[in-house]
Each structure stands twice: as structure tokens, then as C-alpha cells.
């Protein structure tokens, strides 16, 4: 081992590390993500049918999808959906709900202030920071490039 450099060892390990099953993961992400979106679309259509306008129906759909993600996290199902669906389960708004509810549940033992409230954004925090941050930057670019028109 002594004549093996760090670089050589890391290369050796890379060759011996099983690669993720990309094709299978992508197909599953497509199916799971697609099903979540179909569910969203069904909710949206139903809300529209019951007389909500476009904006109200969209808000209602988000609210119900967040509830669904949180509920499935609470009853211990969403971790399984996430394991199967990968990015297909993480990217829709249900995955965002899962990323907030799961640490909130996990850290309840540490109390409601420094546990639940503080740890709740452990995973979702970066998404919020960079999501809000990038929308501000794009908004400013929009104003500069179009002159606010």
C-alpha cells in the first residue's frame, strides 16, 4: 500500500465503485414524477370544474399537493416513494413538503423551538435561499433588460 499514492488509490476506488443505475433511475423518476403531476392535474381540473378561477385553482392545487406530501410523510410512505422515484419524488411540491415535514418529525424530541422549528429547514433551507435569491436576480435582470416594461 505504501507505494500507492492518494490519486492512484482514488482512481482504483472509482473503478471498483458500482455506478448508479442511471437508466432505471431515470425511468422510475419519470413514472413517479409523472404520476405525481397527473394527480396534481386531476386536482386542478376538479377545482376548476367546481367554479374556481385559474389562479384560485392553482393555489388550491399547491395547497392540496403540499398536504398530500406531508400526510404521506407523516404516515411513513413518502420515504419509500422517494427511494423508488428519486428526483421524480423530490422535485414536485410533494417532495418539498417531505423535506420540511421529515426533519420536523425527526427533531421533535429536541423541543419545539430548537428541534422542530429550527431543524425544519435543514434540507429545504438551501432551496428557499437560492430559490428566492435567484428570483431576485432574474427580476433585476428583467428590469434592466426590458426597462421595466
Amino acid at each position: 500500500m505504501e507505494n500507492m499514492s492518494n490519486k492512484e488509490y482514488q482512481k482504483y476506488i472509482e473503478e471498483r465503485t458500482p455506478k448508479p443505475t442511471y437508466v432505471k433511475n431515470m425511468v422510475l423518476a419519470f413514472i413517479v414524477g409523472g404520476l405525481i403531476c397527473v394527480l396534481g392535474q386531476i386536482i386542478l381540473n376538479m377545482l376548476s370544474k367546481h367554479g374556481l378561477d385559474k389562479e384560485q385553482a392553482a393555489s388550491g392545487t399547491s395547497i392540496l399537493m403540499v398536504f398530500t406530501g406531508s400526510f404521506l410523510t407523516g404516515i411513513g410512505v413518502y420515504d419509500w416513494i422517494g427511494k423508488v422515484g428519486g428526483a421524480g419524488a423530490a422535485i414536485p411540491i410533494t417532495g418539498f413538503a417531505n423535506s420540511i415535514v421529515s426533519p420536523a418529525m425527526e427533531f421533535k424530541k429536541e423541543g419545539f423551538i430548537f428541534g422542530v422549528a429550527s431543524k425544519m429547514f435543514n434540507i429545504a433551507g438551501p432551496v428557499l435561499v437560492y430559490g428566492v435569491g435567484s428570483s431576485v436576480v432574474i427580476g433585476m435582470l428583467y428590469i434592466i433588460l426590458t426597462g421595466g416594461g
Binding site: 448508479p20 416513494i81 422517494g82 419524488a89 423530490a90 417532495g95 417531505n98 426533519p103 425527526e106
Partner: peptide
């Protein structure tokens, strides 16, 4: 898990290693 990785109910995929 809660010290080193993710909350139990978080839907993450674990690598083969």
C-alpha cells in the same frame, strides 16, 4: 442516521456503496 445523514422519513436514495 439523524446525526450523520437524513431524517428517517426523508425520501432520499442511498448509493450502492
Amino acid at each position: 442516521e439523524r446525526q450523520f445523514r437524513f431524517p428517517l422519513e426523508y425520501g432520499a436514495q442511498r448509493p450502492f456503496t
